[in-house]
Design a protein around this nucleic acid. Structure first.
Lengths: 349, 349
DNA sequence: CTGAAAGCGCTTACAG
DNA sequence: CTGAAAGCGCTTACAG
């Protein structure tokens, strides 16, 4: 039970026979210490196992760290981006007592001028770290460059650009999510056709969509399944056009048993299937958005695959806090699990 | 951008024209302050929106808080209890820089004397909070009593005893998990028989098992399903006996399509089904334990329903930290979501 | 290159 | 009942 106090900077100073300020200089690698002194101090630190007390350090520093958040504004079209932001706000609330503040730089993803404006705002800010999604990578290259010049850490959520020097990327296993969807279909039926329907959205990244589709197709091939897939792309126009196009497509697929939507635009199809008569068509898509609740509760949507967008925001914020404020090392990559959401468990997410 | 510093205890003292020590007394409701002074100070606190700086407070207090953990030891029979402990250790690592330490009181759940010994160890300890599972409730009543006498907060994980004054209970939606299993079966087939097989375990709580079974039965009734269920109980004896018993039961169920195991003992059945020839029998159980990896990867186990035991431990520890160290208010109850684990997504959990 | 001292926002004896 | 002062483990000017 001997709650033996861990060694402090004072103990190091005493043992190394130097002043506390000198120990501080060594700890933070600041200039102005002779090599000889440096080594002496480092040796003592090693010997007595000194670990700096971060709380005391931050208290003395008397500084508030700021974490910037640059994400799309929640648009009328989709509520997806409110989820990461909720997670971020939750983390900020938890970390409120520590010296961190959040600063948001939300942009209208359909307005390139607004995106540029926010990029400049971030560049000219004094934030100590940044949470960002690597959409609009071309426009944002200059921002990443600026971050690296300033040693300002940035964390990707939702997806990743592997070439970049992000502090961490928090991402979903895209390919495997397509396989998972295929597996779920296989539990529902073992022959027939599946329509892979890509309803275009300006926020889509082609590579992401393709990975999901490839996962599905590969699963059926690897398992020698008798299920066939057919891919169609629709531009995201008005309701009546979508309905007409889907009707046409499905007319060509007499043996259709399932529809897979590789982005979060599933509500349009769900609405269509709700109104349509005929035999059961299994429906699988992505993301537990507010607008999907109704359809999953009715059983029109059978499964949603979900990569915890809220938790991605939470984790990103927490990770930056640990890196910036606590000066911990952090993982370079976080892969989120793939939650399967159904009528019976969606309430608990 | 005006990083306006928030008011400190010094500002309160100055505005209220009292000493800092007096403000401190008021903040913590300590004795020795006249009612008049008290009110004056409280008014100023309200006015200038003073929030104490917990980091400074803990630094000055110079005390290490201790959180106790009383859980079953990991036994050879099942690795379940290593998961909450992993979560707890993860939380402890994250909170290492704050003034918290963990103290474990693990017991051998098959040895009543060991349980009593650990209960006494906890009672005689100086811990500031306790994480515990409400198994063996009869033996533990005296411990809960002691906690309440000492104002020592305790948090339940895994399940709950509603009558107790626990600080919080972190639990799974048991009834709904049975419904979820039924729904998953319904996706796989729409008539035939399901065997609900309860393989007895000393750690089982009858009420918990019954809730899960009821969820399943209710689902089929509510959806007017043609699927029938049949319940059997087996005592957890040796391999050969189990095999013989199952064989006998299944012989009586020619139309068996699925087996539901309402606890985490699924590996015994998975092993049996692996060796057995014949038509596909869908298998659903609980908890992603190490010993299940092999069977889920092979597809012998189709679905595992999982209430994030690791995260339960993590949350419990974090919650006690927030309550004890940060003096925050915390939720009285946390309901964990029901993860669905399959061959395609188990790797990411 | 090195050190003594003030200060971060609190708590805790101690004195009155 | 109230206050002045030392101290928690660091950082940050400032002086030499």
């Amino acid at each position: 039970m001997s709650q033996q106090k861990s060694a402090g900077i004072k103990d190091v100073a005493k043992n190394a026979k130097v002043a506390i300020a000198t120990v501080d200089r060594v700890i933070h690698g600041r200039k102005g210490v002779s090599e000889k002194t440096r080594e002496k101090v480092l040796k003592v630190i090693e010997q007595i196992g000194f670990k700096p007390n971060i709380m005391a350090s931050n208290l003395a520093k008397n500084k508030v760290f700021v974490i910037g958040v640059m994400l799309p504004k929640v648009s009328s079209g989709s509520s997806y981006w409110e989820l990461p932001l909720q997670g971020i706000i939750k983390a900020q609330k938890e970390l409120n007592q520590y010296s961190v503040k959040m600063e948001t730089y939300l942009f209208d993803h359909s307005d390139i001028n607004d995106i540029r404006k926010q990029i400049l705002n971030v560049i000219n800010s004094n934030i100590d770290g940044l949470i960002i999604t690597p959409k609009f990578a071309d426009e944002m290259k200059i921002l990443f460059q600026d971050c690296e010049d300033k040693d300002r850490p940035y964390v990707f959520i939702d997806s990743n650009i592997p070439q970049m020097n992000s502090l961490c990327s928090i991402q979903q296993p895209l390919y495997d999510s397509g396989k998972l969807a295929a597996e779920l279909f296989s539990y529902c039926f073992n022959k027939g056709e599946i329509l892979i329907l890509h309803l275009k959205d300006p926020m889509d990244t082609e590579a992401i969509i393709r990975l999901k589709e490839k996962g599905m197709v590969d699963y059926f091939r690897e398992t020698n399944s008798s299920i066939l897939t057919r891919k169609e792309v629709l531009s995201n126009s008005e309701k009546t056009n979508i309905d007409k196009s889907i009707k046409k497509i499905m007319h060509d697929m007499p043996d259709i048993k399932g529809i897979f939507i590789p982005n979060s635009k599933i509500k349009h199809i769900a609405r269509y299937l709700t109104e349509k008569k005929g035999s059961k068509i299994y429906l699988i898509g992505y993301d537990l958005l507010k607008e999907n609740y109704e359809f999953i509760d009715k059983g029109v949507i059978d499964f949603l695959i979900c990569s915890k967008p809220k938790e991605q925001g939470y984790r990103a914020y927490y990770l930056l806090f640990e890196y910036v404020v606590l000066r911990k090392e952090v993982k370079k990559e976080v892969i989120m699990p793939l939650d399967i959401i159904t009528r019976m468990n969606y309430k608990f997410y």
